[in-house]
Design a protein around this nucleic acid. Structure first.
Lengths: 133, 133
DNA sequence: TTTCGTGCAAAGTGTTTGCAGGCGA
DNA sequence: TCGCCTGCAAACACTTTGCACGAAA
């Protein structure tokens, strides 16, 4: 999992382990709180720096949610899209990717070179739908 | 344009005017810089507060871009999707909206209530494609 | 040993808030 | 007049950076 010139530290491995267990993208702070209890605590700046490193290596993917916080997840084999609950931020993975239809036109007609795309659908998940406020 | 219990100030009108002339969503700071030169200067906090007010009224729409900054635009009649250049942040409006296909499944199978969705496609526009770095 | 990684503290950046005075209705 | 709106300054929240020490290769 961890090759290519970078070092293999406790902190880095712990972070990757947390990302592996996460069912949904997590914030730096969520990672921080999760290790805080354990003897192996990690400082926030270390988490951010590792995220940057892992981003460069393509191991993690970063998305800024509508609350303004960056969330990180392990990069998926096939790129995915998520449906995100506005209340609890839980997410569902979308199987379909409708972008392919659009890409061709965009590249041919507008000369736009597509590098990445994000689909974010917001709403209330089944759990939160019933909760008031 | 401006009814419903709120007051009609120079600052607010100026902001709306700037949004009307903008071809692309703008940041609070961009608005600030644009009025700074003129005799009618507006402070950043006023811009943010007005954005919040206009958001509540549904007059403007806010999107957080991948640089972490919020950008504002007048709410479009029909909801739109944009293709955003990673270098200059210029954007192209997408005519198609492929989400309808997905929505039905999501609501029926997962019980997810969809409230909004964003499609953001990032890449390099025709201008920036040729520029190095 | 050399280099990269970490902790700690401080600084940055974008955004929000408290307060007193001012303008619009 | 009354209440919302503004400017100014300070506070916030998330993220980044500088520096010296510590750990991995």
């Amino acid at each position: 999992l961890n090759i290519s010139g970078y070092k293999n530290t406790k902190q880095r491995n712990k972070i990757i382990q947390i990302l592996q267990n996460a069912k949904t993208p997590v914030t730096a702070e969520e990672i921080y709180l999760q290790v805080k209890k354990e003897p192996t605590s990690i400082v926030l700046s270390t988490i951010y720096r590792n995220m940057e490193t892992l981003l460069k290596k393509g191991i993690v993917t970063k998305t800024i949610y509508s609350d303004g916080k960056s969330r990180y997840e392990l990069t998926q084999e096939r790129h995915t899209h998520r449906v995100i609950c506005l209340k609890c931020n839980k997410s569902i993975i979308l199987e379909e990717c409708p972008i392919e239809f659009i890409e061709k036109n965009l590249e041919e007609q507008d000369g736009f070179e597509i590098l990445e795309h994000k689909i974010e659908i917001y709403g209330h998940c089944a759990d939160c739908k019933t909760v008031k406020n």
